[in-house]
Each structure stands twice: as structure tokens, then as C-alpha cells.
């Protein structure tokens, strides 16, 4: 599992590139490019459609579907923003909160399980670890009831706490493996200096864990960001809805208002676009971190 995570790289290592067979036939190379261009076009045209529809009004969409001509309705974005803006805020708070809390808890547990000694450590670790193998499909209803009994319904915490809980098994496993792999001397020397466990964790373990932390934060963030079903059942007030349920709701109530709807879809894609633009490598690793979860 680790192998996969570490090997997703941007750009091909030079060694591999050099050894690839030389293919004299240029048209073979051309065919490959043509294939890839076609694939990318097919993959991306729905989003291109989305972009072009986002600046049209309903008449333009209905009668001039494939043309884009003035007047351009950039006001669609203003209209969409007033509705989608708060959803983005909600999504950011929930996804960000979940990511932040879960990295601290999983890192602490990773350190505790990886480097500390205390009775009952192994059984406790197994409790957490074993849940990784148990599917969560039947959790929905009881989780809903639990959220209600804890008084969490209709609050950000319903999403955050359950997301943090869901992140535990896999990321505790990863953190523990990572911490256990670090040289013991690093920790011992700090102990000799009289540092307490909390300080060692804060000043030594956390900095060491940094690459895994960002990976896990991103993974948790994306999971919450794209989650639809859980917020659908737990968060119902309009002013607390995340983008997933919020957009689905808008699309069913603003029927016919396609322009502003599409503008809303575009706006909802911006935060991840920014994340992608600024942290491409981490972003991609975060994705596969999720895939490896199974």
C-alpha cells in the first residue's frame, strides 16, 4: 500500500524515460497523441459545456445550444454566488475542520502506538486496525440515530465528528507505520534532554510526519467535500448545507434557470481548482491515498 502512494509521481523518472524503446515510425507516435487528445476531449467536454452555458440565459441555452454569442450573461455568476457562496463556506468549514481534527488525533495515535509502551497497547491498536476491514455500508441509519441522540443533527459537528471517526482506522495505521519506521535515537535524545511526551510529539514526531499529515488532511478533506449522502440526512437547514446537497437542491428548485445553475457549478469547482493549482503533487497523492484505503 505504501508503495503505491509513494510512487505516484509527476513526470517520469529520467532512468525510465531513457530506456524506453526508440520507435522510428513517427505516425505511431502521432496516433498515440491523437488517441490521448481524443480521450481528453471526451473527458472534458461536459465541463466545457458547463462553462459555456454558465454565461447564457435560458433562451440561448434552449435555442442556440452550441453557439455562444453576446449578450453574455456574466450576471449569472453574481446570482449564483449569492446562493453558492454560503455553501462553499459550509463545505470549507466542515471539510477543513474534519481534516484538521483528524490529523491531530491520528498523528497522536500513530505516535502512541508507534513509539510508546503501555499495557493493552496491542489490543487497542487491533480494535482500531480491524475496522479497516469491516465495511461501513450499514452504518448510515444507526449513525443517523446516534447523531440525533448526541444532539448533533443540523450542525457542522454531525459531519465533522463522523468524518474524523471514519478517518481513524486507515490513517492511524499509516501514521503508526510511519512513526515506527523513524529512528529511535531521535526520540531518545529528546528524552534525555528531559522533554515530556507531549513536547516530543509536538517538536519531533509532528514535523517528521509532515508529508503524511498533508496527505491525510487532503484525503479527509476531499472525502468530506464530495460526500453527499451523510450531509443529506444530517444537515437540513438551508444555511448550513454543503455544496453537494446544496447544488442538488438548487438544481431541483431552480428548474429552467440553467445559466445561473451552471455558473453555480463552476463556482463550486473553484476551491478544488485552487487546491490543485497550488499543491498539485500533494493533491494527486491525496487522491490515491483514498483509493488505497480499501
Amino acid at each position: 500500500m505504501d508503495r503505491i502512494e509513494q510512487d505516484v509521481r509527476w513526470g517520469t523518472p529520467a532512468s525510465v524515460r531513457l530506456r524506453k524503446p526508440a520507435r522510428p515510425r513517427a505516425w505511431g507516435e502521432l496516433a498515440k497523441h491523437a488517441f490521448m487528445i481524443l480521450v481528453c476531449l471526451l473527458l472534458l467536454y461536459p465541463f466545457a459545456l458547463m462553462l459555456q452555458m454558465s454565461v447564457k440565459d435560458t433562451e440561448q441555452i434552449m435555442y442556440e445550444f452550441f453557439r455562444i454569442s453576446s449578450p453574455y450573461h456574466f450576471d449569472n455568476y453574481a446570482r449564483a454566488w449569492s446562493e453558492v457562496g454560503p455553501m462553499i463556506k459550509n463545505s470549507v468549514v466542515m471539510a477543513g475542520g474534519s481534516a484538521l481534527i483528524s490529523i491531530f488525533i491520528t498523528a497522536a495515535a500513530g505516535y502512541g502506538f508507534g513509539k510508546l509502551k503501555f499495557p493493552g497497547k496491542e489490543p487497542l491498536y487491533w480494535i482500531v486496525f480491524a475496522k479497516m476491514m469491516l465495511p461501513g455500508v450499514m452504518n448510515l441509519i444507526p449513525s443517523f440515530v446516534l447523531a440525533w441522540k448526541l444532539g448533533l443533527l443540523n450542525s457542522y459537528w454531525a459531519v465533522i465528528l463522523f468524518a474524523v471517526g471514519g478517518a481513524q482506522p486507515f490513517w492511524v495505521f499509516v501514521m503508526r507505520t510511519f512513526v515506527a519506521g523513524q529512528p529511535q535515537e531521535l526520540f531518545d535524545s529528546a528524552k534525555v534532554d528531559g522533554a515530556g511526551e507531549a513536547r516530543i510529539f509536538w517538536h519531533i514526531a509532528l514535523p517528521l510526519l509532515r508529508p503524511v499529515l498533508s496527505l491525510s488532511a487532503l484525503n479527509v478533506f476531499l472525502g468530506v467535500w464530495n460526500d453527499y449522502i451523510w450531509p443529506l440526512v444530517t444537515i437540513q437547514s438551508f444555511d448550513k448545507r454543503p455544496i453537494t446537497t446544496g447544488l442538488a437542491y438548487l438544481s431541483s428548485t431552480h428548474v429552467g434557470d440553467y445559466g445561473p445553475l451552471m455558473a453555480g457549478y463552476v463556482i463550486a469547482s473553484v476551491p478544488l481548482f485552487l487546491l490543485f493549482a497550488f499543491g498539485m503533487k500533494q493533491f494527486v497523492q491525496g487522491l490515491t491515498g483514498g483509493a488505497v484505503k480499501l
Binding site: 495515535a109 502506538f113 482506522p169 511526551e197
Partner: peptide
């Protein structure tokens, strides 16, 4: 301290999973 570090994770797993 060991318990302090791991218990949050264990509790979250047990309660929410």
C-alpha cells in the same frame, strides 16, 4: 501519556464506527 495519545483515536473509532 500513552493512553492520552491513543485514546481519542480509539474512542472515535468505537463511538462513530
Amino acid at each position: 501519556a500513552g493512553y492520552g495519545f491513543v485514546l481519542p483515536a480509539v474512542l472515535f473509532t468505537v463511538l462513530f464506527e
